[in-house]
Design a protein around this nucleic acid. Structure first.
Lengths: 369, 369
DNA sequence: CAGCATGATGGGAGCGCTCCCATACGCGGC
DNA sequence: GCCGCGTATGGGAGCGCTCCCATCATGCTG
């Protein structure tokens, strides 16, 4: 297929593109190699030459041709952000767009490109796997991966640097950035107990997701601690499993009310579920926070707009996005360093040390508790 | 600015990549050119040869090298989705992610790549302009463009196919996909009047945005019609300008209550503003919908989670995303057809005809009205 | 049966860049 | 004043692909 030229552009050659390195070099009165060196910041160029080339670049408005660069260098200067489609819908929207914001911000200083891939079915997954295996990107960011997703291991096997948001298990082998779900949940429940609630229930996320399990652990942790301090005792009847959906929260709340009508507080593992629970409570004629205090997780937009506004656990999502990019770039740089000759700025296991990151969570107090 | 190459990543050869066309050709026992023809679906290949090449592709797991292809063909096989950062935050989140979903879905059948660019400041804008001018992508999707944004015209000037979401004015010169803001607003206000409301106010969006003006026009239109049918008459005191933010909606509602305490209905030009207005009403001790009926615009998540759930005007956002992609691909393909020899499937002004699209809006009735 | 159109095929010529080797230059030491 | 070595520089050799033209094979016309 011919190049995408605007008809007004006259001739029909390949897409009109900017000046080439060759032209820049000519303009600066140097060789192509030298110009390339300047543009890529190689140190072995004299100051005079560097200035000349930079001037030429500015005058000509030179922009390196990515395709050519990628072809010659064997790297694509691009990373993919992979989002399983269903998750995108489930996970409250802010999660995704905040991650995106963080990623994009951090990438802004690089000339890496961000390639967005929504995977919506098995076919899409295979397609991407194929694509990645062929090294058509330099690195991959995986958002909200399920425990049974084969993609991460596949990427590792083909030597494609990848960073997960969230873990699949406590000792996730791949590099990841996670938030402190356990502590966040613990804070939430402690808060509830601190407000004098005696029957603190929880609606969990799907327990095959590690993050959801952590939140449940945090719940248990807080109750155990309170028990020792003669606070309310753990009671397994007060734990119901949800699925992060509003409908799930609604069902869960109904079930809790059935099991024990005297429930006076609920920690929901997501804001969206809290919204569902809130609805059930309204239907049951319970006042929030009068009869039942409610705490969510995520600090999504829903939380702010509920009535009353929802106390919730905030995760530094944007920062997680940024951290993921930093980690990935590190990884990508590190992957090149298998030639022992070059300088290595720090200790031996530096990369490994930087490839697991758990960011803090924070309780946001609002009127629902 | 130096390229983001892994510094010191000196050698280590290019990233391991899959088999090449050459290898596929050899394997299939044909020439490189023939293999290329098969892969690109050229018709001038015999059935036998085609099968042989396809078999070789399958066996070798061949994936064409994008960079090489782009370099040789002069097109990048990629389109950019450009999102002004502020808008992204303002516009209720669903807008963005739904557009994205649509775009991604429609792109799924192509082997175009989606390149995401958040522009957050002047520098970013220039950077992108530069980038686009150098034809580093084949087409651009622009989301939520302000009337004074120079980017669209700049893209046109450099012959870069582009499609806007929303118009900048009624007779937008660039290809766009918009929703029927006027009719949507009109429906909303007619609905309010139909419910017997007599003092129907509106909190508009920023009036330098065309879409916001359309919604205001729709409001006026409905009132004028009602006036003729001896319904409530237009009253300019019932119009306040907002800014699409929650805070703006809050302020707007306060102002309306001040101007006329007997307001009994408000059409807000966005759900988020409706949320702000709802808050102000609660503070003022007004019941919704008892004292004041409320209608929003967008049908975002906020609308469903408000108390009471918000009646609102839905735009087919995902479909808009899909339509934008279709239009852009058309445009890109059309740009090729300047050689008169080739077949042209339809009438002369076909492309122009398809480059303005206004999709219908729909009233979603909930309990706030 | 020659002559020619038609369709299939092979492979050269780059696309713009990076890598790397060869070259030219400079400079201190003998 | 010559040698050797380190440092800036030029430019060849591709990277894998598409485009296009020359080459063949084929089947038809006259």
């Amino acid at each position: 297929m011919p190049a995408a030229r605007a008809e007004g552009g006259g001739k029909s050659g390949p897409a009109k593109s900017g000046p080439t390195l060759e032209q820049v070099a000519a303009r600066a009165g140097v060789g192509r190699g030298t110009a390339s060196r300047v543009i890529n910041g190689s140190p072995r160029v004299s100051e005079r030459t560097r200035a000349a080339v930079q001037a030429a670049v500015a005058e000509l408005g030179y922009v390196p041709n990515r395709a050519a660069r990628a072809l010659a260098a064997g790297s694509m200067d691009a990373i993919a952000l992979v989002v399983p489609e269903q998750e995108n819908r489930l996970f409250a929207e802010p999660y995704f767009s905040e991650i995106l914001r963080g990623v994009s911000t951090e990438l802004g200083d690089t000339d890496m490109q961000l390639l967005l891939t929504l995977i919506r079915d098995q076919r899409g997954r295979e397609r991407f796997a194929h694509y990645a295996a062929a090294h058509r990107v330099d690195g991959v960011l995986l958002v909200s991966v399920h425990g049974d997703d084969p993609l991460p291991d596949l990427l590792r096997d083909v030597g494609m640097p990848a960073v997960l948001s969230g873990r699949r298990s406590h000792d996730e082998q791949l590099p990841y950035v996670d938030s402190d779900n356990l502590l966040g949940a613990q804070l939430a429940v402690e808060h509830l107990i601190g407000r004098g609630r005696r029957k603190v229930a929880t609606i969990t996320g799907p327990l095959d997701m590690y993050g959801a399990r952590c939140r449940l652990d945090g719940y248990h942790e807080a109750l155990r601690a309170a028990d020792r301090a003669s606070g309310p005792s753990p009671d397994e009847r007060l734990v119901v499993e949800g699925d992060f959906t509003e409908e799930g929260g609604h069902r869960g709340m109904l079930e809790l009310l059935r099991r024990d009508p005297e429930v006076d507080a609920v920690f929901c593992a997501s804001d969206v579920m809290a919204a569902g629970a809130r609805l059930a409570l309204r239907e049951a004629g319970r006042d929030v926070p009068g009869d039942v205090a409610l705490v969510g997780f995520d600090d999504s937009a829903v939380a702010r707009h509920m009535d009353p506004p929802l106390t919730t656990v905030r995760q530094p999502i944007e920062e997680m996005g940024r951290a993921m990019v930093r980690m990935l770039l590190d990884l990508m740089a590190g992957a090149h360093e298998h030639a022992p000759g070059q300088r290595r700025p720090e200790g031996p296991d530096e990369t490994a040390g930087r490839s697991r990151l758990v960011l803090p969570t924070e309780l946001i107090r609002r009127r629902s508790s």
